[in-house]
């Protein structure tokens, strides 16, 4: 299955007609039939048929690392816009490793329109979101550029164990942070920033096609960059599934390679 091009399916399409297989993400069962309930790529893992979405809004999940923009300052915290239908709450207690006094001027920490990297700690049934900035790599983003991509393409931008993003990082020398909500922060040499942005847009557009890593490698080399490819096995097909398979090498620093592995075991 992984060899050939994945099939695009649309809502209402019958995917299988058997009790032997189980309906997974993006599908439902009607008597014997398993039917698609959203637009995406068809994928089968063992007995489970599921759909890898191609479009849609980001739905917050616990433990996701996201990039947010401060759009309101409240009495005891900040509200962040996280490119989703719902905004996130960053409370004073969770905002930094330092202790923030009651009544302190919150704008001194994060002002309106600042971008921050935060981790989602809780999502309620009504989609009220709590985020925290206590943790490695969670910080305020200074300078650089922010681009928006389709949140369902994020796992492909990151690649297997961060292989794709580190390839771009190494080639362009930019610092890159990829938020699960589809915001990407890039900082480096201005000319290189542009190449990095172009590469990421290319990945986003061609993520459903085969041989992506190789294509991106040639693309970067066309720009006269040397690409050091990390040992990763190409064709990360089951990798863009969105929610189950998180990679966590989203920070500018390299030392998080290990953390990514920890995550996968969860």
């Amino acid at each position: 299955m992984s060899e050939e091009q994945k099939k695009v399916v649309v809502p209402g399409e019958i995917l299988a007609e058997s009790m032997e297989v189980l309906p997974g993400f993006g599908t439902y069962r009607n008597e014997k039939k398993i039917i698609a309930s959203r637009l995406g790529l068809l994928s089968q893992e063992g007995k489970v048929i599921k759909i890898i979405p191609l479009s849609g809004k980001y739905l917050p999940q616990r433990n996701d690392i996201v990039i947010g923009q401060v759009f309101d300052i409240l009495i005891s915290g900040w509200r962040l816009e996280i490119n989703s239908p719902y905004s996130a709450m960053l409370s004073m207690k969770e905002a930094s490793h330092d202790f923030i006094n009651k009544g302190a001027d919150l704008t001194r920490y994060y002002n309106l329109e600042d971008y921050v990297v935060a981790k989602i700690v809780n999502v309620t049934s009504q989609n009220l979101i709590d985020v925290s900035m206590r943790g490695p790599g969670l910080k305020k983003l200074k300078g650089g550029r922010i681009i928006k991509i389709n949140p369902f393409k994020v796992p492909r931008i990151i690649g297997k164990k961060g292989s794709m993003v580190s390839m771009i990082k190494n080639a362009t020398g930019c610092k890159i942070v990829v938020g699960q909500n589809g915001l990407v922060w890039i900082q480096g040499d201005p000319a290189m920033e542009i190449i990095a942005i172009q590469t990421i847009t290319k990945i986003e557009q061609e993520s459903h096609l085969n041989g992506l890593t190789e294509k991106i490698k040639t693309y970067l080399e066309q720009h006269g960059l040397t690409v050091v490819k990390e040992e990763s096995h190409d064709e990360q097909h089951d990798d863009h599934s969105g929610h189950e398979h998180r990679q966590d090498d989203q920070y500018g620093e390299q030392h998080d390679e290990q953390k990514g592995e920890e995550y996968e075991e969860n």
């Binding site: 809502p11 209402g12 439902y28 039917i35 309930s37 959203r38 995406g40 479009s55 809004k57």
Partner: peptide
């Protein structure tokens, strides 16, 4: 459907 919403058909 293009917007990626969950639809029966």
């Amino acid at each position: 459907a293009d917007a990626g919403l969950i639809m029966k058909d």
